[in-house]
Amino acid sequence: MLAGLRGSNNEGVLALVLVVIVVAISILNPVFFSLTTMFSIMRGSIVPLIFALGVLIVIISGGIDVSFAAIAIFSAYTAVKIAQDGNFDPGLIVITLMAACFGALLGLVNGAVIANFRLPTLIVTLGTQGLFRGVLIAYVGSKYIANPPMSLDEVAKTNIISIVNEQERGAFLHVLVVPVIILTILVAWMLKRTMFGRAIFAIGGDDEAARRAGFPVVRIQMMVYILVGVLAAVAGVFHVTLGRNANPQDLVGNELDVIAAVVLGGASVFGGRGSVLGTVLGVLLIQVINNSLLLAGVPTAWQRAAVGVLLIVGVGIQALSAKRKTKRSFVTAQLGA
């Protein structure tokens, strides 16, 4: 009976863990349980969730991409710099589109190398991460841009829900939550309802079988990495917008949080498994933990440790449940005999 609630990727378990943690922290520190905190966690999830959607797609396809943060800052910084150097302000949408083009291009580099030469994805993206960052700082610019285009500044200050309360801190829900929700729904639809999405699952399940089934495996892998590049670029622009500055040294180094969220969300590092719902829960869980540790006065260094522990626990649970499954099938074979 409980098995049904667990979900195909343990999403139920994750949701339960999330609820337990929220309740526990709220009891310890009642300040935590408020609209203010909720909205602030949602705002904090905007960038990591877009990253996580991209990472989810690659992980399902059986690969990994650690260059997404480098792609994000490369694309966003370059787009903002072009606007700044040219002294024009095309607005958030055009800047995002520009960045997305750069992201697609960098993703194509990853995809072309990985799909055509069948190289290990971790090593390739580790390499391109350094490459993208190096090129950004050497050729595009290493200067911190403190005053991005005014239009981004405007967006940064826009909330869709603002509750201003006399006694308490106000609660503000940032407008960029909306495009993130749309993106999330789009990715979920793509993975579940399109042949492209199913092909990603198929390749992650068994790439040789996918080839024999007639899937254009090389092309799909390229598209996966391009898609990750585009998502990363969007996340990069949102990050620049929310932070109201463009810093070429930014983002790279925070990949762990995102990958941990996706893996906690039930995506298998061996490919073929994962869900958008799980990923959303994973991102929220990590945000809640970061946030609550902050409220509890725990130093940032320990937050990193906490995320590391969570990652190992998440992978451990996967391995354990896989083990239990084989044991179960062994027993059913006995009963069937």
């Binding site: 199913r198 699952f201 198929a202 992650g204 399940g205 068994d206 040789e208 079988a209 996918a210 024999r212 089934a213 073929g272 498994r273």
Partner: peptide, 13 residues
């Protein structure tokens, strides 16, 4: 149609 010895099925689907 060839049914290979390993069946070429997708275990995760």
């Amino acid at each position: 149609q060839v049914i290979y010895q390993d069946f070429s099925l997708f275990p995760n689907l």
